[in-house]
């Protein structure tokens, strides 16, 4: 029984971490829909938001103020990213420009974070629950903090799904994703929708940041880049551009990672993710739920 319990606990932790990967993958998807761009600075955005919230907390501000403040700043950064690192570079035929430019902005945030808060790890306080709070389900002890993260991530994804499919903004976004010029002809402000998509994407990065930070316990300026690649693996696993894929890919990656960590070695956890990335890109670049893109001549 204890070995089963161990496995179940690993799977549960994997699902919680994986839910955050799904959120990151969603962040990639949103900008991919509107502009075919993914933000290579997404990781540092995740890190920066958690750092901001932490520093507000340390200034004595309550959670209820710190979090919205952190989110506002990260949304503003999303706006800046789109205006300066993406829009001017979309006109070039190659993607190298915006890849390098978004990466540059991300790295700048990372360097800025080490300048302001130092390069060492900072403790991130538990959110709502204490680290020692447990819920017992089917005889296994589940950390309340983890459970909260899982539930919140799922709720946010559900909310997004509703917004995109049911509201007029969601439909406008879909129209822009289909063809920005056509959407413009139909009276949709394509450029604004694009900018908005980057702001939402940045917000999702921020949410992922403050959800994952209590799980990690400590945060460093570097942690964002690493987790970004994990989120990207999740997105690729499910198929870039697919919401279902992002959810599925994230959860699956989280579980695989934790199982590998539990049964083989914790140091192999992230290595496995990169290996999955290389294998999936080589064998099935469209992922499990992605749509095959037809090459145009």
């Amino acid at each position: 029984m204890s070995s089963l319990q161990f496995a179940l606990e690993l799977i549960f932790t994997g699902l919680c971490v994986g839910a955050v990967y799904s959120l990151i993958a969603h962040g990639f998807n949103i900008t991919f829909w509107t502009t075919k761009v993914v933000n290579f600075g997404h990781g540092p955005f995740i890190m920066f938001c958690s750092m901001l919230v932490l520093s507000f907390l340390m200034k004595g501000l309550p959670w209820i103020v710190s979090i919205p403040l952190g989110f506002s700043i990260i949304i503003l950064l999303g706006y800046i990213l789109e205006r300066f690192s993406i829009r001017p570079l979309l006109k070039y035929p190659t993607s190298m420009g915006w890849i390098v430019s978004t990466l540059g902005l991300g790295l700048f945030l990372q360097a800025l974070a080490s300048k302001i808060w130092g390069a060492q790890a900072l403790a991130f306080p538990p959110f709502i629950f204490q680290a020692t709070d447990y819920v017992s389900i089917f005889g296994i002890q589940l950390s309340a903090q983890y459970l909260l993260v899982l539930v919140m991530a799922l709720v946010i994804m559900l909310l997004m799904e509703v917004i995109i499919n049911k509201t007029i903004w969601g439909k406008a976004m879909k129209a822009v994703a289909f063809d920005p010029n056509f959407a413009r002809v139909m009276g949709i402000k394509s450029k604004m929708v694009m900018t908005l998509s980057f702001m939402i994407s940045a917000l999702l990065a921020g949410v992922a940041g403050i959800l994952i930070a209590p799980i990690y316990g400590t945060i460093t300026p570097e942690f964002g880049m690493n987790i970004m690649v994990l989120g990207f693996v999740a997105a690729v696993l499910g198929g870039i551009g697919s919401s279902k894929g992002a959810l599925f890919g994230g959860l699956m990656l989280g579980v695989i990672e934790k199982l590998v960590g539990g049964y083989i070695s914790t140091s192999a956890e992230h290595g496995v993710a990169f290996l999955i990335l290389i294998i999936i890109l080589a064998l099935k670049p469209d992922g499990f739920f992605g749509v095959k893109v037809v090459q145009k001549v």
Binding site: V37, F40, S95, V229, V236, G271, F274, L277, L281, A282
Partner: peptide
Amino acid sequence: PAGRVKEFYLAMMTLGFGFIVQEVAKE
């Protein structure tokens, strides 16, 4: 594997490759 992908997929893959090699060197 790299020859099969392009653009930002390749960028992410090479980023991951960099992490893997550094990880191996560490472990």
